[in-house]
Amino acid sequence: MIGRPRALLDRRVQFRRATLVTTGFGSDWKWNEVAPDADNIGLLVWAQKTPISDGERWRAGEAAAHVTTRFVVRWSLFSSGITPKDRLVESGQVYDIHGIKELAGTRRQWLEITASARTDQ
């Protein structure tokens, strides 16, 4: 039987969704930089956290430290609606979501979320 013991779900994560803002030139997704909690959606979700890698990237002349992490959450109607356009927050660290998939052999039981966060801010 494939499954995850409940004890491994030892983190609480919050998901955030940007707001669609209409401008004079069309629409764009905007994050609330002044009050980030205003972007929260749903309730806190139990998750398992597994670090994948960390490192530095050079972009536009700046060094940025980042960490890539996998989170596993229970499948639910809410969690199945999360997309890579959303963000995940765990212990105050904000992660950009890169991928979401059902774990192999666990149809509608577990979702694996791959996300990365800057660690130099």
Rank of each mutant, 00 (worst) to 15 (best):
L9R: 05
F15N: 03
R70V: 11
P36G: 11
L103P: 04
L44G: 06
R59L: 07
T22G: 12
R107C: 03
G24C: 01
G105Q: 06
T22D: 14
A65D: 06
I97R: 03
T23D: 13
T106W: 04
W110Y: 15
S79E: 12
G55W: 03
R11M: 00
G3V: 02
V94G: 02
G55L: 00
T119S: 12
G3I: 02
P36C: 11
V89F: 02
I97S: 04
K30H: 15
F15Q: 00
G42D: 01
G24F: 11
L9Q: 00
W110P: 01
E90C: 14
P51S: 10
L88H: 01
S91L: 09
G92A: 05
G81Q: 12
I97F: 02
N32K: 06
W58Q: 09
L111N: 13
Q109F: 06
T23S: 15
G42S: 03
G105I: 07
Q48F: 09
G3Q: 12
R108K: 07
R107M: 03
K101N: 14
H66F: 15
R6S: 13
L44D: 11
R87L: 10
K101M: 12
S27C: 08
A64S: 06
G26T: 13
A117C: 13
R108M: 05
R6A: 07
A117K: 06
R107V: 04
F71A: 04
A18D: 04
K30Y: 15
L8P: 03
K49A: 06
T69H: 08
V94R: 13
K49I: 02
E102H: 07
V13Q: 05
I2D: 07
R17G: 00
R12G: 06
L8G: 09
T114M: 15
V21W: 15
L77G: 13
N32S: 13
L77V: 09
N40I: 02
V94Y: 07
H66V: 00
L88P: 00
T69I: 05
G99Q: 15
I52S: 07
L43A: 14
W58D: 09
A18Y: 01
R70D: 15
V13I: 14
V21P: 07
E112F: 09
W29P: 02
S76K: 08
A47Y: 03
W75G: 01
I2S: 11
R87T: 03
G3R: 09
W58K: 10
H66Q: 09
R107Q: 05
D39I: 02
L103Y: 09
A47W: 05
W110E: 08
A18N: 11
G81E: 01
A60Q: 03
A115E: 00
S27H: 07
I100V: 11
T68F: 01
R4V: 14
F25V: 12
D86P: 10
D39G: 06
T106R: 06
A60K: 10
E56Q: 13
I2L: 10
F25N: 14
H66R: 10
A64P: 00
T119L: 08
I52G: 01
I113L: 10
K85A: 14
